[in-house]
Simulated scan of single mutants.
Amino acid sequence: MKFTATEVAGAFIVEPEILSDERGSFFRTFCSDTFAAQGLATTYPQCNVSTNRQRGTLRGLHFQAEPGAEVKLVRATHGRVFDVAVDLRPDSPSYLKWAAVELDAARHNAFYIPTGCAHGFLTLEDDCALFYQMSAPYTPELARGVRWDDPAFAIAWPFAPAVIGKRDAACPDFTEEVVR
């Protein structure tokens, strides 16, 4: 696997080494030894799937507060999405910076998002699906969100969203209090 650092400290684009022959292809999506050698999380007690019908669907920006902060390893299993991580860790060298990667099911790439970062995505085509590996179980009382278009982050989304859920549309602007 190839790990490429992003603008957000501790966030990586993960690309598999694909072996192909006349039968098709084979690749690893995760290996605890390989991730541990990079100093990354190796335990994922919860996995989730997000399906999205329409191009322009926006989800996020979501995170869990301490003590339930979670690493996310996100991969598109169908379609393409513009996937974003925003660093909300005040002690981080990339505090309030964002990184984005186009996750593409055909490329089999993934985005490793460390704890303390908000996550969101915008679908680039119809019928997208994402598979999430989570380092901590979902805890509703620790669930948080910040506005996807907050000027504090100035995320350069590729286009305006067409579909936003009520919860995401109601997310507040970023403040230090929101993160706690």
Rank of each mutant, 00 (worst) to 15 (best):
residue 131 F to E: 09
residue 140 P to K: 02
residue 149 D to V: 08
residue 77 T to L: 12
residue 62 H to Q: 11
residue 161 P to I: 05
residue 56 G to I: 05
residue 126 D to V: 10
residue 82 F to I: 13
residue 151 P to R: 09
residue 132 Y to S: 01
residue 34 T to S: 12
residue 17 E to I: 14
residue 87 D to P: 10
residue 173 D to R: 14
residue 106 A to W: 11
residue 56 G to D: 00
residue 171 C to Q: 15
residue 36 A to L: 08
residue 107 R to C: 04
residue 18 I to Y: 11
residue 111 F to M: 12
residue 116 G to I: 00
residue 15 E to V: 01
residue 178 V to R: 00
residue 114 P to D: 01
residue 111 F to A: 08
residue 104 D to V: 09
residue 17 E to T: 15
residue 77 T to H: 08
residue 16 P to T: 03
residue 163 V to S: 07
residue 179 V to F: 06
residue 62 H to I: 05
residue 41 A to H: 00
residue 77 T to D: 06
residue 64 Q to P: 04
residue 136 A to Y: 11
residue 18 I to M: 09
residue 71 V to I: 10
residue 16 P to M: 07
residue 21 D to T: 09
residue 168 D to C: 03
residue 126 D to A: 13
residue 102 E to R: 07
residue 16 P to H: 12
residue 175 T to D: 09
residue 30 F to L: 13
residue 126 D to S: 12
residue 149 D to A: 13
residue 163 V to R: 08
residue 144 R to E: 08
residue 129 A to P: 05
residue 72 K to I: 00
residue 94 S to G: 03
residue 38 Q to S: 10
residue 110 A to Q: 15
residue 171 C to N: 15
residue 23 R to V: 08
residue 2 K to V: 07
residue 66 E to Y: 12
residue 3 F to D: 02
residue 6 T to L: 13
residue 174 F to I: 06
residue 83 D to E: 09
residue 135 S to D: 05
residue 90 P to I: 04
residue 36 A to G: 09
residue 177 E to W: 03
residue 174 F to C: 03
residue 33 D to M: 09
residue 172 P to E: 12
residue 143 A to K: 14
residue 119 H to Q: 03
residue 98 W to S: 04
residue 115 T to A: 12
residue 23 R to Q: 11
residue 31 C to G: 05
residue 37 A to T: 11
residue 135 S to Y: 00
residue 104 D to N: 14
residue 23 R to F: 10
residue 153 F to A: 03
residue 125 E to F: 06
residue 88 L to Y: 04
residue 25 S to T: 07
residue 139 T to L: 15
residue 90 P to F: 10
residue 88 L to H: 02
residue 23 R to W: 09
residue 23 R to E: 13
residue 161 P to K: 05
residue 20 S to Y: 04
residue 47 C to V: 07
residue 162 A to Q: 13
residue 110 A to S: 15
residue 65 A to M: 04
residue 40 L to A: 11
residue 145 G to P: 01
residue 90 P to N: 12
residue 26 F to N: 13
residue 116 G to H: 00
residue 1 M to H: 03
residue 125 E to G: 03
residue 126 D to C: 13
residue 141 E to Q: 13
residue 64 Q to M: 10
residue 6 T to R: 02
residue 170 A to N: 10
residue 16 P to F: 06
residue 110 A to C: 12
residue 3 F to W: 08
residue 42 T to M: 09
residue 115 T to S: 08
residue 8 V to C: 01
residue 1 M to K: 02
residue 8 V to P: 01
residue 73 L to A: 03
residue 138 Y to S: 11
residue 12 F to C: 01
residue 37 A to S: 14
residue 176 E to K: 14
residue 144 R to C: 11
residue 157 W to F: 01
residue 86 V to T: 06
residue 60 G to H: 01
residue 95 Y to F: 15
residue 57 T to Y: 00
residue 93 P to S: 10
residue 144 R to A: 09
residue 19 L to K: 14
residue 171 C to W: 15
residue 143 A to R: 10
residue 116 G to V: 02
residue 97 K to I: 06
residue 128 C to F: 06
residue 48 N to H: 02
residue 36 A to H: 09
residue 58 L to T: 06
residue 92 S to R: 00
residue 49 V to N: 11
residue 112 Y to K: 01
residue 154 A to Y: 04
residue 166 K to Q: 14
residue 1 M to N: 00
residue 105 A to M: 03
